[in-house]
């Protein structure tokens, strides 16, 4: 600032910030949340890694085994399957929920009577408790008298027991995950759409652009940054998702729908093998961090 350039008093030559006494006030206000985060996030991060290097149980800490648990992981068939299932589950639920969310956002962005009501109604799958959505979906698809099978039988087909075989259960878990996740995609894309101004479309129309062209060259580029963030967030959330596969199938039939979170839970809390359980969770976190950092740095380049 120009007024500071010409000091009128010799006192102002001293850098004023350095002379201020330490201000404890903001630190005191921050203390409760900083302590809570240290206990619930920083502490487990450090000890979780420590447990992954041991052969302990939930009741007793075990011997130090170095990286043996991590090496053991790759020899385990159920770990390799969980890795594969997590990838399939993430890819299909991310793009499925994004595509449906995008279509519904474009639809809700049109001039429809009672638009606010429809927006609320389409958000419901996202806000209801996971256990409630699982109860309703289980009846829809798994029972012979469920709605989907009644409809299949009405058109002359045999009933399908969607949770009875590995591939059908995989398909069902993905469908339920998409159903639970698309509203968040829709809401975020809708919010981005509403920041697009009408003038750019009008300008494009004057230049002779058709509907598809204005979608391709105005709407999509505008939605790309938010979509990128949504893909990353959604991938992290589906790899970490425990509730959808666990509540719907408990990871079954015979571990077919077990992702890394369900696997880590089973090893820790059912098989009481804390070393392997912690190693799986730690490995999952590393995988997700590498994934997020790679994608974010690539996004910055483009």
């Amino acid at each position: 600032m120009s007024t500071r350039a010409i000091p009128s008093h010799s006192q102002e030559l001293r850098p004023p910030r350095r002379s201020l006494p330490f201000d404890a006030f903001p630190f005191i206000l921050l203390l409760p949340s900083a302590l809570l985060i240290a206990l619930i996030n920083i502490y487990p991060f450090a000890t979780g890694f420590y447990y992954s290097l041991q052969s302990g149980t939930l009741l007793q800490s075990g011997d130090f085994v170095g990286l043996a648990n991590f090496i053991q992981l790759f020899r385990m068939a159920d770990f390799r399957h969980a890795l594969w299932f997590s990838a399939i589950f993430a890819i299909f639920s991310v793009f499925g929920s994004w595509a449906i969310g995008l279509l519904l956002a474009l639809f809700l962005n049109m001039d429809i009577p009672a638009r606010g009501f429809f927006r609320v109604a389409l958000l419901l799958p996202w806000i209801i408790p996971s256990i409630v959505s699982v109860v309703s979906w289980r009846w829809l698809i798994s029972d012979q008298s469920g709605l989907v099978n009644v409809m299949l039988q009405a058109i002359g087909l045999k009933p399908i027991y969607f949770l009875s075989t590995g591939s059908l259960a995989t398909f069902s878990v993905i469908v339920v995950k998409i159903w639970r996740s698309f509203p968040f995609m829709m809401l975020s894309i809708l919010a981005a759409l509403q920041t697009l101004n009408r003038e750019s479309y009008e300008a494009a129309a004057i230049d002779g652009a058709g509907r598809w062209q204005s979608f391709r060259y105005i709407t999509m580029p505008h939605l790309l940054p938010i979509s990128f963030v949504l893909w990353i967030l959604m991938t992290i959330w589906s790899v970490n998702d425990f509730e959808t596969p666990w509540l719907l199938t408990q990871g079954g039939p015979s571990n077919a729908t077990e992702n890394l979170s369900v696997l880590a839970y089973r090893y820790t809390f059912n098989l009481n093998d804390v070393g392997i359980g912690a190693a799986i969770s730690f490995f999952t976190m590393l995988l997700l961090m590498i994934f997020a950092i790679t994608l974010l740095s690539r996004q910055r380049e483009t």
Partner: peptide, 12 residues
């Protein structure tokens, strides 16, 4: 971004 399961094991 922290997976809740990784926190649950040590905290349990």
């Amino acid at each position: 971004m922290f997976p809740v399961l990784l926190a649950l094991i040590p905290l349990f």
